[in-house]
Amino acid sequence: MSSTPPPPHRIVLAKLGLDGHDRGIKVVARMLRDAGMEVIYLGLRQTTDSIVAAVEQEDADAIGLSMHNAGHLTLGPAMLAALEEAGIEVPLIIGGIVPDDDRPILDAAGVAAVLGPGSSAEEVVATVRAAIDAA
């Protein structure tokens, strides 16, 4: 039996809460796909519960949340709490509009990385890979 190659990384991408700005997340989905990852795209208006269920069922290696509604300081930690409660250790990456002053707060809360507007495909892919490798 020949040895099996390492499987592609699997990442769940979602919009959490009431936030309809999904152009960015679709671009990120495409970037990650083109880097050879399997992107499980959940779409709009997800809850922490629906994301936890998806991560469990899909055995995802990482979660990417897109935030354009200024809810990151509430929803980011809420997501982390839901994951901890479910006993899931998977890196959470937040992308979107996050003011510089808020980044240290998210870092301290346990968010693995924050990607802002204008991040290149290389940056996005490298950040996701680094977060998965560090987990």
Binding site: P8, R33, E38, V39, I40, G43, R45, D49
Partner: peptide, 24 residues
Amino acid sequence: LTGGAILGDRVRMAEVDTSAFIRS
């Protein structure tokens, strides 16, 4: 070309109860 994939079936299944198990 890249071996990557966008698995989007869950978007259409957003209202499914989390008791069902969906695997992409």
